[in-house]
């Protein structure tokens, strides 16, 4: 895949205008049961670019359908699924899909940059989590020691 075949993660952070998304949705609805893969993807990508979690979820659902129905598009779909899940905060999924893609194309710039982004985000949230967790543990320890002291005093 050449470099301009896939959008960078930054592209996914700029939502389409309401009207633009509406156009894609209408196209998708009009084709109904026999919707073409391109139309479906257009709508799905528009949804993933959106900043609403509902839209993003639906976008991922559509992408999942494309992945299932069109084997020749699976490789591309992996990237979009990774990107969508990254935006939703499902880092495990995002990482899984992205790693699969990197397995196939280890020089894919977009996937590599996405990998970096996911790692950063997980690390940050992980630190935060560790901080919270350790905070809780310390608080519990303090409480425990107070209680212990109280008990021993009463005795």
């Amino acid at each position: 895949m050449s470099s301009d075949n896939l959008p960078y993660a930054a592209d996914a952070e700029s939502p389409l205008k309401e009207a633009e998304l509406e156009v894609l949705r209408k196209q998708y609805d009009r084709e109904g049961q026999y919707v073409s893969i391109q139309t479906k993807f257009n709508y799905a990508w528009g949804l993933i670019k959106s900043d609403k979690a509902i839209d993003q979820r639906y976008g991922i659902k559509l992408l999942t359908e494309i992945f299932r129905d069109a084997p020749e598009r699976r490789r591309e779909c992996l990237y979009y699924l990774a990107l969508g899940n990254y935006k939703l905060g499902n880092y495990a999924e995002a990482r899984k899909y992205n790693d699969l893609l990197l397995e196939k194309e280890n020089k894919n710039m977009q996937a590599m940059s996405l990998k970096g982004l996911i790692e950063d985000r997980v690390a940050k949230e992980g630190m935060l989590g560790v901080a919270i967790l350790s905070g809780v543990v310390i608080a519990a320890g303090v409480m425990g020691s107070f209680l212990y002291k109280g008990l021993t005093k009463r005795r």
């Binding site: 075949n5 993807f41 598009r73 979009y80």
Partner: peptide, 19 residues
């Protein structure tokens, strides 16, 4: 099961083209 992609255009290009 991810086959080689031999399509002449990517979905993203298709998206750009139609938008």
């Amino acid at each position: 099961d991810i086959p080689e992609n031999d399509a002449s255009y990517s979905l993203f290009q298709g998206f750009k083209a139609s938008v």
